[in-house]
Amino acid sequence: MKKKFIALNMLALMSHGALAEDNSVEKESWFGGFVEYYNADNEKFLPAPQFNDGFGLGLEYGIRFSPSWASRIEWSHVNLETKGPKQSIGGDRGGIDVLFFPQQSDYYVFTGLKIEKYDDTQRLVNVGLGRHWKTNSNFKIITEIAAHHDFGEGFNDHSVKVGFSYAFGGEKKATRSAARIEDTDRDGVQDNRDLCPNTPANSRVDNTGCVMAKPVVADSDNDGIPNNKDACANTPSIDKVDSKGCSIFEDKEVRMQLDMKFAHNSSIVNKNDMSQLEAFSTFLTRFPNTKVVIEGHSSSLGDKQYNVWLSKKRAESVKNILVKEYNINSDRIDVVGYGDAKLLDNSGTIKAHKVNRRIMANVTAVERKKITK
Rank of each mutant, 00 (worst) to 15 (best):
K3W: 06
L11A: 12
A12M: 04
L13R: 05
G17V: 04
A18V: 10
N23C: 12
E28V: 12
S29W: 09
S29T: 07
F31R: 02
K44I: 00
L46R: 15
L46P: 06
P47M: 02
S68Y: 07
W69K: 09
N79L: 07
N79Y: 05
L80Q: 08
E81H: 13
K86F: 08
I89S: 03
I96K: 06
F100W: 08
F110I: 01
T111G: 15
G112E: 04
L113N: 09
I115N: 10
R123M: 11
V125T: 08
N126Q: 15
G128D: 02
L129T: 15
G130T: 00
K134I: 09
N138R: 07
I141E: 00
I145W: 02
I145K: 00
I145D: 02
F155W: 13
H158V: 11
Y166E: 02
F168Y: 15
E171L: 13
E182M: 08
D183E: 07
T184K: 13
D187S: 06
P197G: 11
A201Q: 13
A201H: 07
N202W: 11
R204M: 14
R204W: 08
T208H: 05
A213Y: 09
A213W: 11
K214F: 15
V217L: 11
A218G: 10
I225P: 08
N227P: 04
C232Q: 04
S237T: 04
K244T: 09
K252T: 06
K252P: 11
E253W: 05
Q257M: 07
D259F: 08
K261A: 14
F262C: 00
V269R: 07
N270E: 15
N270V: 12
K271A: 13
S275C: 02
Q276P: 02
Q276T: 10
A279Q: 14
R286A: 15
R286P: 06
F287Q: 11
K291V: 13
V292M: 05
V292A: 06
S299C: 10
L301T: 13
G302H: 14
D303W: 05
R314K: 07
E316C: 01
V318T: 12
L322P: 04
L322T: 12
V335M: 05
D340T: 03
L344D: 14
V355N: 13
V355A: 10
M360T: 14
A361E: 01
N362C: 04
